[in-house]
Design a protein around this nucleic acid. Structure first.
Lengths: 341, 341
DNA sequence: TTGTATGCGTTATCAC
DNA sequence: GTGATAACGCATACAA
């Protein structure tokens, strides 16, 4: 008695139905055409009886196509990544693809490993949301001309479809809201820029808007890593010190928003009183921290499903130039930007 | 010119190195033994030159073993799931396994689909954190005697390794802390019980403790689904109405904690003043909502990596009776349970 | 120590 | 319409 009652194969089905393997295969793949109803019946019954399921592995080996899509995320701990992932996964599933996930856990050494791994599983395409440090050339070789779509982060020298938040619109929305609320002194806080395009874009958008607003309003930006909470606290204090009225802080994403909340709490300040706060990424907790934290919600679901759809189109053979899709964010005004003069 | 420069295979390597395919295969699998250094050199060089990577698919097909582990999570949107996943993924990786993820998105129809899918990819074992509604018998058939370890949620009629928070200890820790803080009136809030064993265990632990504490303390428990915020609000009001001093609410998990925070906010109450709150699951935002929310932190990383390790032991052939591993939680005391009489 | 041959579960190309 | 048969990329029993 074998411990693993081995899965039934196409051969088993063929035997039981009294037909050839080829016929069973035809039933599986071209059920509609080329099959006499009587035989189809028998095959179907045999499949049913044996609880037969095709082996995607063998199928992929033979066909060269795996019905697999590879997703690389920078950090699955980030709710943004998960939200995008959910959207993408749904779209993939609807199109009959399965998603293989590779999480970088923010370690850039893992980037090429992940790509290799996914690649070796014959994924038909990649959705990438990575650290962006790999060289374009290296990247291209492991990608092997398979379709790629980038989410949120652009790769230098890789001209492929790109789906992302409209960072300029999002930053502008923050400033519009803040100006209307009466704020005139600003501090933009981002994670260390590195080579991450979305971070850079947001900073640039911020600088541009600040330049346009001067001299009615003024501000600057700082990087705040996880390792230096004191630096962030000092930056906040400086912002307050140099301002006539409460300044407003703009957080580049949800992670930074949390760090700012921590710093503000440590300083004993109240959001919306001593300091204003708005951030990109609307998190589940934003409404309940302090007086509620204002935020620009990203259309994460749409981003994910669009990315998947673009990729699947490419896999299907679509050959148009690289597309860039920018989706607008939605401003959620809450107490943290209700300036009380 | 073909669009996909096809990946090089073992045959290409063999040709380039001037050896047989078998030799290359030996180099790959038994590098240490059975190989003359000179030939090994040549093979290695060829592999390098061609950037050859073995096809895990073909390998799995031949060997019957895929080096894949299937993980089914109830809801990837839940940070608890992600945290466990991270821990498990790391352990798998260290042991040379790749994890295939299937997210149920809380839809129970997907449960059997997911199992089938993973199963068809020849995963060598399963880590399951599911909705728990599938029949044991059905389950067994798709599992096909492959090793399984359950995380957080027990399956009726499936005697396999199980890794989870020590729910009794966690609930007791809550009560100990709450009693010490001076609370005497309690309300335990859980997601609808359904067939989810962890929810049931926590309620039972709560009932037991309440019974032991009576009549010095008293309380009850309620289910609070996402669809009925009013019901939760009423339950909270009832709890306050019937109590001499502020009652304490115990949330069965992070999701419920968030719902309670929303309800308390809507009622205009302050945590730690009109009402106490402690919850299982220490979330990133817990320290920053109101005066900070007390919580019992789950050792999510350890849970995940233990689950993976157990599974890998089983895959390796370990044949001991089903093990049950319960890890203690860690109480984080914050402002929400600082009773101010 | 190395090469030859076979088969893993499929699909595709031929015949019939 | 349907059935042999080869091939996908690899690992292994066996022969040399």
């Amino acid at each position: 008695m074998s411990p693993h009652p081995p899965r039934s194969t196409i051969a088993d089905v063929a035997r039981r139905a009294g037909v050839s393997k080829a016929t069973v295969s035809r039933f599986l793949n071209h059920r509609d055409t080329l099959l006499s109803p009587e035989i189809a019946q028998r095959v179907e019954a045999a499949i049913e009886a044996l609880a037969y399921t095709p082996s995607p592995m063998a199928r992929a080996l033979k066909r060269g196509r795996s019905r697999l899509i590879g997703l690389v995320v920078a950090d699955i701990t980030n709710p943004y990544s998960v939200a995008v992932l959910s959207g993408a996964e749904q779209a993939c599933r609807q199109a009959g693809y399965l998603m293989m996930l590779f999480n970088l856990a923010n370690e850039r050494e893992r980037e090429s490993v992940g790509l290799q791994m996914l690649s070796s599983y014959q994924v038909e395409g990649f959705i990438l949301n990575t650290l962006g440090l790999e060289q374009g050339a290296v990247l291209k070789s492991v990608l092997q001309d398979r379709p790629v779509v980038l989410v949120d982060r652009l790769y230098q020298g890789l001209e492929v479809d790109f789906v992302s938040l409209d960072n300029v619109q999002a930053i502008d929305a923050c400033f519009d809201h803040l100006m209307a609320a009466g704020y005139r002194d600003f501090l933009f806080v981002t994670e260390p820029l590195g080579a991450v395009s979305s971070r850079i874009e947001r900073v640039r958008a911020c600088e541009a808007r600040l330049a346009a607003l001067a001299p009615a309003a003024e501000g600057r930006w700082v990087e705040a890593g996880a390792d230096d909470p004191d630096g962030l606290a000092r930056a906040l204090q400086d912002a307050r010190a140099g301002a006539r009225r409460p300044p407003a802080v703009i957080a580049a994403n949800g992670v930074v928003t949390m760090r700012i909340v921590a710093a503000v709490t440590a300083l004993g300040w109240r959001l919306g009183e001593e300091i204003g706060l708005i951030g990109i990424d609307d998190t589940s907790w934003a409404p309940y921290v302090g007086p509620g934290i204002s935020a620009v919600a990203q259309p994460t679901d749409a981003l994910g499903s669009l990315a998947a759809r673009c990729l699947i189109e490419r896999i299907g053979g679509l050959a148009v130039p690289a597309r860039t899709i920018r989706l607008p964010g939605t401003l959620m005004a809450r107490g943290s930007t209700r300036l009380t003069p």
